[in-house]
Amino acid sequence: MKAANLLASSDAEVDFFVHGVFSYELFGQTFWITTTHVAIVIVMLLIVVFAVAARIAISHAEKYPRGFQNVVEMIVEMLDKMVVSSMGPYAKKFRNYIGSIFIFIFISNISGLFGLRPPTADYGVTLPLGLITFGIIQYNNVKYNKFGAFTGLFKPLPLLFPINLIGEIAVPFSLSLRLFGNVLSGTVMMSLIYTLLAKFAYGWPGILHIYFDVFSGAIQTYVFCMLTMVYVTDKLPEAE
């Protein structure tokens, strides 16, 4: 047992789990407030403070923007361009949702930099995000294709119905597992380095933080939003 732990400075346990903070009883079940809830509240507060500051900056907008107003306009333009480039004329109905999940997932992913356990490294956070996307996809499917939403499952061959059905149901799971797996693997790598290599981990893990938290987090955020838009656009009728 000791031989395997040669590099560890002490009997440090590798720790990347979700911890309970306190529990409460509801309808005879025990529920836990976990570190994920705490991290989400911190992320939410950060976003709300930024939103209020942005609101104040925009309400005193100047014709030639400078300082903080510039930053806010840059973010809005970037998100807007991303949605317009892949959804075309339908962009104005969906940019609120896409922009919101983009900012939330991005801040969650890079919250590992601030010493939090990223909320997106908990399957209980990413699965609801996937299910919301699934709801939006199916709502638009029924809204625009009417009965074709059901008969579409039998195209091109009636024989392919089970495969088409699985293909529809697998969407939220593949979306959420992709985000969860990427963020979790980054969290596990960083905690392995900080506990097993504790003697040598000074300074240089910062480079790995840039890769695992910032680069990987940004890519996965972009991919989640892109795929959401691709799936939704797929259900909308062709724009003239």
């Binding site: 969860f180 797996g181 990427n182 996965q220 972009y222 991919v223 795929l227």
Partner: peptide, 27 residues
């Protein structure tokens, strides 16, 4: 570059399924 990164991230999914199975078996 953006198309390539999107495709790579989708291709990564199967590897992440393996990772999820490994985590379930270990923890």
């Amino acid at each position: 570059t953006s198309t390539m990164l999107l495709g790579q991230a989708v291709a990564e999914t199967t590897g992440l399924y393996g990772l999820a199975i490994a985590f379930i078996l270990l923890f």
